[in-house]
């Protein structure tokens, strides 16, 4: 990664340099209550251009609840900036194996949570069609989805590097 993190964030519309390190974000973070996840430190390290921000698994402890973003006295879109950092991390190959599995599921069947036999039965009990009116029912729709994913080179992005 040759370009500076802070510049990449700025290009994407996130000016983390206006952060005054007040810690409102960290104090508001529901995930941070239970983990070592420290939003303020993520922003500080990003502006110091520390590459570890991207490789640290803590980046994936944010539930994207947007409380920090709503409360930031500087109006920094913090959660959106965290999402941008994640996208940069993914480009560097930092992906949790569980998240890779979810992506593969969508690539395979068009859903992050696929239909199972138990739910088919529940659907029938309710008088619904066992297969819902989604991509699962229409093979041509699934083909469309696969074409789009290929167009975006998504399979290469999530492939193990």
């Amino acid at each position: 990664m040759s370009e500076k993190l802070v510049d990449m964030l700025k290009t994407a519309g996130f000016d983390v340099l206006s952060c005054m390190q007040c810690g409102t974000c960290t104090g508001s973070c529901p995930s941070g209550r239970h983990t070592g996840f420290n939003t303020r430190r993520v922003l500080r390290d990003a502006r110091k251009n520390k590459a570890e921000v991207l490789s640290d698994d803590d980046l994936w402890l944010c539930t994207t609840c947007y409380t920090c973003q709503e409360r930031c006295p500087r109006g920094i879109p913090i959660t959106d900036a965290i999402l941008e950092l994640r996208r940069l991390a993914v480009r560097e190959g930092f992906i949790l194996p569980e998240h890779r599995k979810v992506s593969e599921m969508v690539m395979e069947c068009g859903h992050a949570v696929p239909l199972d036999e138990e739910t088919k039965k529940k659907r029938e009990e309710l008088g619904l069609e066992p297969i819902p009116e989604t991509v699962q029912k229409y093979p041509e729709a699934l083909e469309e989805l696969k074409t789009l994913l290929k167009c975006c080179k998504f399979d290469q992005l999530v492939a193990e590097k």
Partner: peptide, 15 residues
């Protein structure tokens, strides 16, 4: 008919 995963923001918007 034919709609897919939205796609899931936690994964796709993060990726």
């Amino acid at each position: 008919p034919g709609a897919s995963c939205c796609p899931a923001p936690g994964i796709f918007k993060s990726f």
